[in-house]
Write a protein that binds this DNA or RNA. Sequence first.
DNA 1: GTAATTGCAAATAATTTGCTGGGTG
DNA 2: CACCCAGCAAATTATTTGCAATTAC
Lengths: 135, 135
Amino acid sequence: MPKAKRMTKQKQTILEILRSTTCHPTADWIYEQARKKLPDISLGTVYRNLNVLRDEGEIMELNYGSTFSRFDGNPRNHYHFVCESCGQVYDVDYPVQNQLEKVIEEKTGARVQYHRLEFYGICSACLENKDGQPS
Amino acid sequence: MPKAKRMTKQKQTILEILRSTTCHPTADWIYEQARKKLPDISLGTVYRNLNVLRDEGEIMELNYGSTFSRFDGNPRNHYHFVCESCGQVYDVDYPVQNQLEKVIEEKTGARVQYHRLEFYGICSACLENKDGQPS
DNA sequence: GTAATTGCAAATAATTTGCTGGGTG
DNA sequence: CACCCAGCAAATTATTTGCAATTAC
């Protein structure tokens, strides 16, 4: 069975900060806010709890599933599938929904320059491996 | 006027590598490939040229527009708008297209667990600032 | 009580930058 | 032949981790 998780005041505080803001803060910003309530909290603890909360499904982390950038030789917009098992990024053959950008512009008053759509999951190659061998 | 960009054999090589692969490599992988043709190329040069090529619109960089993660207290899927001027991330009020995931699963044979859709551009607050004052 | 979690600081990992000499236009 | 750009290595930035002390359950 998976390890039992405890609710500490540090974890509780971090979750409250995230739940009570509509901005999408960085770890460092959360750290600054948390210090107002818990002056001795450390940045390492903030990072550790953010990872725990993400793994528990309480919060979302917004990145490309990894700490480093990937580059694409095709500069025209297209969509991607990211395999969470092997880390591969695949192109997805699905028509680009450019009309969406107009809709969002009208909704928000912003100027939309481009959009990105990524699907996350397990690619077919990894699915086959999982069924076949344990490793 | 903007600076003139030169075409060096390093830049040329990096672009060829990116154009001739369907994978979405990291800077480090590109560096390894480039060294096969130019053994003395440095990792710093790879990074510099990737940034130049991205700014020229020749390639795409896949990340969230910044080097650090952002966190979202709402774990339910929803879409985001990222302002390229001020860096703010906003929630977008647009219905989540869950049926897309099925479509992609059938197309690719992968298991799709979730998807993300982000719009990039200039937010309304920054648009107003730009029109008003130069800074 | 005891094992998970903290604070601290040092370690990693990814990317950027300063400097000087070399190559492009 | 001027100036941009490469190589090298050191600097930055974001994040993770080892360890001894602390705390939640």
